[in-house]
């Protein structure tokens, strides 16, 4: 009897190591169900967006048939993912990549690169580390950073800020910046803060439940050493935004908005406050989705975007942009000129 008890005890302990990993067939239902399960287990904004994922999946699964062709299945799965209304969600196959575009396509663009380059920069500007820059007037420094995917070299940033150092105000234009590497935020922000600062918080899923999240973990930004790096402190900084500022650009705006000498000018950003994870389906398609929510310094969600500073919401009419007038940049220049 004693041995039986020991045996059962050992067996029960060993059984804890045996976990069923769900397996899905590589057929229309199997692939759909795999996608539904992956997103259900790992997507992070169900509660914030009020999405009943199981119900949504039931509706779309009804469209799947045993003989559903690959293109049809891709379309069904893409529309299913569009229900998340999230620009960080993509389904990728060898023939297509799905993409929810309404987060920016339903809003004015408020930016035209040609207008900027022709009428404000006169096609005459300096460029390094993915940043275009020049002194717009004797008093206003300007830098345009279109993608956080471009790595910023600290020494290049030293040159940029040294050249713009004589300005009495700085414009950082990140319109149409769709994001990239979060580490570039640290490189930039460190030049505009005197002391280390908490710029936001990050969470992660701790399990498949829709509300299973870790405690918020602070994202600390390290102030650059003034003895080693060129900094831009004590002067007004304006960050220009439009709806196409997304993901890392959205995070950058959230951080900069909390600094005392910084104002956000333009339109509400596009959001993208969830760090995306990747996974895949049995047929080899890959899926990307928001998994780790990033909040601002007050632990408010940034998924829906960041508003401009009070009194600084400005939009550009397409006709004006075509005529060479960038209302957001004009507003910013005027703000800096009248500031002092």
């Amino acid at each position: 009897m004693k041995y039986k008890i020991y045996g059962m005890l050992i067996l029960s302990l060993l059984m804890t190591a045996c976990h069923e990993v769900p397996e899905y067939q590589d057929d229309p239902y199997g692939n759909f169900d795999a996608l539904a399960a992956i997103v259900s287990d790992r997507y992070c904004f169900f509660e914030e967006k009020g999405i009943d994922w199981d119900e949504v999946c039931r509706q779309y699964r009804a469209e799947v048939k045993p003989d559903t062709k690959m293109l049809e299945l891709f379309d069904i799965c893409s529309r299913l993912l569009d229900e998340l209304q999230d620009g960080h969600v993509n389904l990728s196959s060898r023939f297509n990549t799905s993409y929810y575009r309404k987060w920016w396509s339903d809003y004015p663009q408020d930016f035209n690169l040609r207008t900027l380059q022709q009428y404000y920069l006169d096609f005459d500007y300096m460029q390094t580390s993915g940043i275009s820059y020049k002194m717009l007037t004797d008093e206003i420094g300007y830098m345009y950073y279109p993608s956080f995917s471009s790595g910023i070299s600290p020494s290049s940033l030293d040159y940029i800020l040294a050249i713009l150092h004589e300005s009495k105000g700085l414009i950082i234009d990140i319109r149409d910046n769709g994001g990239g590497m979060l580490t570039n935020i640290n490189t930039l922000v460190g030049r505009f803060i005197e002391e280390n600062a908490t710029g936001g918080y990050i969470r992660h899923k701790t399990g498949p439940a829709h509300n299973a999240f870790s405690d918020p973990f602070p994202i600390e930004y390290e102030a650059a050493d003034p003895d080693k790096r060129v900094k831009y402190l004590g002067k007004p900084i304006l960050v220009l935004t439009n709806r196409s500022c997304y993901s890392a650009a959205n995070n950058f705006v959230a951080v900069m908005k909390t600094l005392p000498n910084v104002r956000i000018v333009g339109a509400r950003t596009g959001g993208g406050g969830g760090l995306p994870f990747s996974s895949e389906l049995p047929n080899g398609w890959s899926v990307r989705f928001s998994s780790c929510p990033i909040s601002d310094r007050h632990d408010r969600s940034t998924e829906a975007g960041i508003d401009p500073s009070p009194g600084c919401e400005v939009h550009c009419k397409d006709a004006d942009l075509a005529a060479g007038h960038d209302a957001i940049l004009d507003f910013a220049i005027n703000l800096l000129q009248t500031a002092g």
């Binding site: 790992r42 870790s214 994870f277």
Partner: peptide, 16 residues
């Protein structure tokens, strides 16, 4: 790593 934790968060210092 934690279930949904990125190495970016670990790099930030969350090693719990």
């Amino acid at each position: 790593p934690q279930y949904g934790e990125t190495y970016y968060e670990i790099w930030l210092g969350n090693r719990e």
